[in-house]
Write a protein that binds this DNA or RNA. Sequence first.
DNA 1: TCTAAAATCTGTAACGATACAGTAGACTTG
DNA 2: CAAGTCTACTGTATCGTTACAGATTTTAGA
Lengths: 342, 342
Amino acid sequence: MDEKNKSRQAAMPSTLNERPTLKTIAFMTGLGITTVSRALKDAPDIGAETKERVRLVAKQVGYQPNRAGVRLRTGKTNVISLVLSLEEEVMGLTSPIVVGISEILASTGYHLVITPYRFSKDALAPVRYVLDTGAADGVIISRTEPNDPRVALMMERNFPFATHGRTEMGLAHPYHDFDNEGFAYEAVRRLAELGRKRIVLLQPPQHLTFHRHMRKGFDRAVRDFGLEAVPFNSVDIDNSLVDIRAAFETLMSDSDAPDGIVSGSGAGSIAVIAGLEAVGKRLKHDVDMVSKVPSDFLSWLRPEVITMNEDIRHAGRELAKAVLGRIAGTPAEELQSLSKAI
Amino acid sequence: MDEKNKSRQAAMPSTLNERPTLKTIAFMTGLGITTVSRALKDAPDIGAETKERVRLVAKQVGYQPNRAGVRLRTGKTNVISLVLSLEEEVMGLTSPIVVGISEILASTGYHLVITPYRFSKDALAPVRYVLDTGAADGVIISRTEPNDPRVALMMERNFPFATHGRTEMGLAHPYHDFDNEGFAYEAVRRLAELGRKRIVLLQPPQHLTFHRHMRKGFDRAVRDFGLEAVPFNSVDIDNSLVDIRAAFETLMSDSDAPDGIVSGSGAGSIAVIAGLEAVGKRLKHDVDMVSKVPSDFLSWLRPEVITMNEDIRHAGRELAKAVLGRIAGTPAEELQSLSKAI
DNA sequence: TCTAAAATCTGTAACGATACAGTAGACTTG
DNA sequence: CAAGTCTACTGTATCGTTACAGATTTTAGA
C-alpha cells in the first residue's frame, strides 16, 4: 500500500488469446478476482450494476470456469459416473441408457464418465474407487441385488447415487425400475387369453432383485388364471444365447413341453425361438411367446412374438434426473420411479 | 531458517483418515513434498533407497494422485473423450464401442468421458468444446466424412485424436476402419456364386466416407463378376426402419426386382427382410442377401441371410490404442488400422 | 456532526501437484 | 587443500478457484 504501484490483484493481462480466467475478466473490468468470482455466482454482496458488467464481459470473452480449479478448491467434480459391467454387454442395453443419461446431462454442467468393471464379483471396486478418489459427484449403478453392498456403502457415506433396479434393504434411495412384476403378469394374462395352459419363464438370474419381481408377477398370474407354471431353472437371461438355445431345445422336445413362454430378455428370446424351431415347433401354432424387448427388432422378424417394450433410454433419463435430484438435496423418496411396458 | 523451528515443508499430519496426499507421505517419511513427488515418478535425482521407501509408504496408505491437482498444474486431464451423436443410436453400435474403449483404458490412468451432440449439423461443437476447455487429452470421433471439419480442426491444433472411419484430406491421422470395400466385394462375390444377377446395395449416406468405400467394392465386384447393379438411392442405412421397409417393398414388387441384396447395416437388414417378405418374396428362393452385422442375432432368426460380422468392440479397442499412441507421440502412420469381416 | 450500520469491494490463503532454482554435503581433482 | 563436480534433497511459486476475514465507502440514525 505504501508502495507506489498499488499492485492490484489482477495485474497483468497474461498473454493474448489464452483461455480467459477470472483474472482476465478482473483485469478487463478493473475489479478484483474475488469480486468477479462472486459476481458471476450472483452473490448478494455485489452491486447490481457490477454484476451486469462482469456478466457481459464474461460472455464477451467466452469465459468458462476451469474445472480443475473448481474441483481442487471445492471438491465438486461436475461428473456423474455410470458404473458398467463389461461383461453385461447384453444386447443394446447400455447404449440407450448412455444416450438417455447424456440427454439430461447435456443441459447441465455435468459430464458423464464411464467407470467399468470386468467381473460381477468386482462390482464393488469401481464404486469404492469413485468414493475414495472423489472421482464424481454422483453414481449410477445397475443390476441391483436385494441386499446390495454398493448401495450399503454409498448410503453409509451419504454419497448421491441412483440405481437401475430396486433393493430390499429397508433403505430409501433414488431408483428407476421397470415394472417387471406388471410385465410378467400381463404377459401371462395374454398367454392365458390365447388359451395357453403350461407356461414357462425365462427369468433373470436369482441374485438380481428383479428376478423376484418378475417371478412374483408370473406366479401370481399363473395362479389367477388357473394355469400351470413349468419349472425351469437350467438357464437364465444371463446365460449365453447358445446355452439358452440348447436348454430350450431340450425343454421343448419334452412330451409335456410348455405351450406358452414368457421371456425376460429380448436377446434371450432369439435363442428361445431358435431352440423351439429347431425341434419343429412353431410360434403361434404350438406355442405362444411374450417377450420383453429393449428395441423393436424382434417384432420385425417374428411378428408372431408378442412384445412389450422396456424403454431403456427413458430409464437413462430418469436415472440422470434422480442422481441430479439427490445431489440437489431432494429427498430420496421423491426420486423413485417405476415404468410400465409401452 | 533463523527461526527456531525449521518449519519443514510437510509440517502437520493433517487430520486422520482423510485421503492421503503427497504431504501425508512427506510427513510420514520425513522427506520434502517435492522429493516425494519426484520419487514417485522415478526421477533420476532421487536416491534408490529413498524411492523404495516412498513407494512403500505410498502403497501402504493407498496414495492416489489427486486428478484436479495434476490437471490444474500440468494441464493433463487423463481423460479420453468419445464424441457421440445422440441421434445415431443405430442398433447396438455405441455400446460395444464403449466397452472396447473401456477395456483398453482400464489398465491406464485414463477415464472415458462421453461428449454428446444432438444433431449432425452440430458435430463440430463438442470437438470445439473439448479443444477450447481442455476437457480431454484425446478425442475419438466416428461417422467421418471425406472432408471432415473436425479432423481439420484437431490437426490444425495438433490435438491427439482417432477416428472411426477414414477421411480423404491428404492428412495422416490415426484411424480405425472396417474394410467396407472388401466387405461389399466379398458380399457381391457370394451372391454371384449363388447365381444371382441383379444386385442392389443398401448403402451408407452419401456424405460419409465409408459410402465411397462400400460403393467402390460393390461396383468393382459387379463388374468383375459380370452382374448388374440395380440403381437404388431412395433410402440409405440412416433412414428409419419404417422408411427402408417401405422402399424395399416398392423395389421388390417391381417386375425387374433385384435377386441379390447387399445390406450395409444389420438393423437395416431387418427392415429389408420385412419389406421383401411383405410382397411375398422369400430369402434363398427369390432373393439372396448378404448383411453386415454388428452382432449375431440376425443369423439366429434368419439363417438364410449370409452375415459378415463387423467387430465393433474390437474397433473400440483399436481406437483407444490409437489415441493413446498419438498422445504418447507415435507417428500417425503407425496408428492406422483396417479390419476385415470375421 | 458524529457514529453505527449497510453496502460493496478486495487481499490472502488454501486446495494438491509440479517446474524450477536452488542448497548442503560428499567426493574428485590438480 | 581449495575449487569444482556430483548426488540427493528441498523451498518457492504457480495453475484457477473460492472461503474467509477484512477494508472502504455510503447511508442512516440521532
